[in-house]
Simulated scan of single mutants.
Amino acid sequence: MGTGTRPARLRHIQGIGVDRMGSLADAHPERDFLRLENLDTDIPPDPQAVARTQASAERDADNSYLPFVGQTRLREVVATHAARLSGVPYTADNVIISAGGLSGLLNVLLALIEVGDEVIVTDPTYAGLINRVHLVGGIPRFVPFIFQPGGEWTLDQDALRASITPRTRALLLMSPAMPSGAVLTQSDWDVVAELCTARDLLLIVDSAMERLVFDGRAVLAPAGWPGMAGRTISVGSAAKELRLIGWRVGWIVAPGALIPDLVAVSLANVVVPVGLAQDAARVALERSWETLPAYVAELQQRRDATLQALQGLPVGRPGGGWSLLLRTSDFGLTGEALSQRLLDANVCATAMTGWGQTHGAQYLRFVFANEPVGRLSLLRERLMAALP
């Protein structure tokens, strides 16, 4: 193979746009950009987790690769957390710690998806997840959310049913979904469970934001549905719910029968995150039942401030998460074109090219987690100045 030939596994890998937009804003620190392009947050993590990180720097036990599947106390707390949400009696033996949630998702896909297997994803979906399906040789099959300007995104259940083929191996779902903020309902999960059990499919859940839901919604963990505990793999993260973005800690919670293959892949790929971060994640996760409500309330206020700034425009109302989407085609623009125009108005936002088939290039994402309410109110004036 010559230097100019790319491996076939990279044929469908696309850029996600976020890194490029972030670099453009970082290159001009003198400008007062609204930083709405990346899933960061200015809301600090639990101070006790920060203190535990500092203490870990002086503990020899935290300066270690071992245990390869992750520190035992963290795995126990993750198991208790997952069991509390789902009702499934998980133990530490069901848990593997990963170097962030996305690393965990890649390990799950590598362990469970064969080349040519179809993996059901929603449309839109984070381009990084789509890339990971391609990277392992899987084929993403898109099921669209239904977009209603000013309303909430809803899952097209009929399209979900129609998407299943003999080659389908798994569903890869996230709720709240990224980037739309769509939240799957109990009815949606009923259909997912029905399809998985009837067709012997796996369910891979990106649970990184599962408790970041607004307007009094209940947290739903599909592993607790009848017949689903033995076929559901949940991949969590300390980044979104715990705000430990730079710590790079994630976890895989899976049925015991799948653990050996998941461990084998994990040991071949990164192994575990840094020891200095793992017990801090344990502290933050254990305390999150106390600390999370105020954080979710702040995110909801930011969501509301962003919706107020976009009132009357073709935007989808997120039921949770960190971001929302504006349909730019209503103004005769692609998401990329409006993104470039907004840079001149000191707004940094990411176009959704490559993030979906039905809902992709004609959308622009605004992340509301990284700016306070007062600054989010500046969005409308700047956006209107950028529109044709």
Rank of each mutant, 00 (worst) to 15 (best):
233 I>Y: 12
243 R>Q: 08
225 W>G: 01
251 W>C: 03
228 M>R: 07
231 R>Q: 11
239 A>T: 12
252 I>A: 07
240 K>D: 15
229 A>T: 15
227 G>T: 03
253 V>F: 11
229 A>R: 10
254 A>T: 02
223 A>K: 08
236 G>W: 10
247 W>K: 03
233 I>M: 09
243 R>K: 10
236 G>S: 14
240 K>C: 10
256 G>N: 07
248 R>H: 14
238 A>E: 12
233 I>R: 04
245 I>M: 10
246 G>I: 06
239 A>Q: 13
244 L>Q: 08
231 R>Y: 07
231 R>A: 07
224 G>H: 00
223 A>S: 14
248 R>P: 10
228 M>P: 02
256 G>T: 10
232 T>H: 05
237 S>T: 15
235 V>D: 13
252 I>Y: 04
246 G>S: 01
248 R>F: 14
246 G>K: 00
225 W>Y: 14
236 G>I: 05
239 A>R: 15
235 V>M: 12
235 V>L: 12
241 E>A: 06
249 V>C: 04
239 A>Y: 09
255 P>K: 04
245 I>S: 01
253 V>S: 10
238 A>V: 11
233 I>Q: 06
246 G>Y: 02
232 T>D: 01
242 L>C: 02
232 T>N: 09
238 A>N: 10
254 A>N: 10
243 R>D: 04
256 G>F: 06
243 R>H: 11
226 P>E: 05
232 T>F: 02
228 M>H: 05
256 G>C: 08
255 P>N: 00
256 G>A: 15
253 V>L: 07
235 V>F: 13
228 M>G: 00
243 R>N: 10
245 I>L: 10
246 G>E: 04
254 A>P: 13
245 I>E: 14
249 V>R: 00
239 A>M: 13
250 G>V: 05
247 W>L: 06
229 A>M: 04
227 G>L: 13
224 G>D: 07
229 A>D: 10
234 S>P: 08
250 G>A: 01
249 V>E: 07
236 G>Y: 12
235 V>N: 02
224 G>F: 06
236 G>L: 08
237 S>P: 15
246 G>A: 05
239 A>S: 15
247 W>T: 01
240 K>I: 05
238 A>C: 15
224 G>Q: 01
236 G>H: 13
236 G>D: 15
254 A>D: 13
233 I>F: 15
248 R>W: 11
225 W>T: 00
248 R>G: 08
239 A>G: 09
248 R>Y: 12
243 R>S: 07
251 W>D: 07
253 V>W: 05
246 G>D: 02
240 K>G: 03
254 A>L: 08
256 G>R: 14
254 A>G: 09
242 L>G: 06
245 I>F: 14
252 I>H: 00
232 T>M: 01
227 G>H: 07
245 I>C: 02
252 I>T: 03
247 W>P: 09
224 G>W: 00
250 G>R: 04
229 A>N: 11
227 G>P: 03
233 I>S: 07
229 A>K: 08
223 A>Y: 09
243 R>A: 05
255 P>V: 01
238 A>K: 03
235 V>A: 10
241 E>W: 03
242 L>T: 00
242 L>Y: 02
232 T>P: 06
223 A>L: 01
224 G>I: 03
226 P>F: 11
249 V>G: 00
254 A>V: 00
254 A>R: 04
238 A>M: 13
230 G>T: 03
